[in-house]
Design a binder for these strands. Sequence first.
DNA 1: TCTGGGGTCCTAGGACCC
DNA 2: TCTGGGGTCCTAGGACCC
Length: 426
Amino acid sequence: MAVVDCNSFYCSCERLFRPDLAQRPVVVLSNNDGCIIARSDEAKAVGLGSTGPYYQYRDLIKKHGVAVFSSNYNLYCDLSMRVMDTLRSLMPPGSVEVYSVDEAFLDLGHIDPGQYHEFALNLRHTVEGWTGIRVSVGVASSKVLCKVANKLAKKNKGITHCVMVLDTEESISAALQEFDVSELWGIGRKYSSKLKEQYAINTAWQLKHIPEEWARKHLGGVVGIRMIRELNGISCIPMKDPLEKKKMISCTRMFGRPVYTVEELRESVAAYIARAGEKLRRQGFSAGVIDVFAVTNGTRGGEYVYDPKTDHRFVMLPRATSYTTELMEYALPLVDQLFRPGQKYLKAGVIMGELVPDDAVQADIFSGALHANQRSLMDAVDNINFSMRGDVVKYVASGLKRNWKMRQDMRSGKYTTRWEELYEVK
DNA sequence: TCTGGGGTCCTAGGACCC
DNA sequence: TCTGGGGTCCTAGGACCC
């Protein structure tokens, strides 16, 4: 199998429309312009070592003339679709698993193992030629090893040309001996410090030779066992069925500034419900449970310490729905239950659960006719909001001033999805 | 002054049932 | 004097991913 991963995806998307930035370091910020979430190779080279809070890197960014962008998900999603469509057109039906916005696993069952390298190189050239996005390809017999191959391909671009195949004992052991456990797919901060500090396991090679029972005990049960097997080239994280049902849809944001009143908290939650409702409808789901949560942060001894606390309430709906008005009727009262005066609120959100595909929603003889009306009202609202600027049709509950809205000061144009902002070639 | 958003999977432990 | 065993379902919380 193989994993295809776009190089510094968000940065590459921004550069596609700003060729003048080709050699300059580029970073992209999270919502609210809070964290750096993507860095180009050049940005990494000038010392932006890891993703993290933007303000900590301000000086470095100024010093090296780094181009900074707020995140522009319309653009990234559109380019992602083009990349994935390209991959699907080059592969047999059903052999592409889209894993994330910038990454896909491929089932190479139809390729002769002797041809892996050539196939992967060709894939990379085609994607870049058709979409302008450069990808790296890692090939191996398990997903974990594919990810290792992919990372190594990215590290030595000059030698690998962004392609690496790990298909022999020698190449695999050479790769794993140099590979830090903390970089493995499935080993996060907690596990990696545990492995290193308590057990002196530092490389993927060492981890590969650990007994399965040990892994069961110390690395999350069956998850640990799978890790060891995958490192040994035994595939046990299968390709996922693209038709598999989603389990939750959520919408959550940090506030642009702290919120102290129940009115503002309610407004923000209403806005998130409206947005989550849109997502539900677009993906063809109704929700059976709504969970509303809010995150507070206090000060300790007058000093600011980032120590968020989450509180939540949920409600089960008598009948699953994606009708925004109804979602709000059930969910907004939760805000009043949740709210505690005097608290400093940093963030809130809603999570829609118990999703059922729209066509499977239990019919209710009393609401059949109404349901058709709701549907066409929502279609109209969604169409207007999609085709016009921003949220033209808003719910009064979601507020008109929206002082709490997130900051987004450096967003690029929606070059590919909005006529008014279409990229111009002069 | 200031730390994102959207997901998944797994486990332990309690409630409940026969 | 003495209080089973096995199963399922649910929830909270932890870990991870991009």
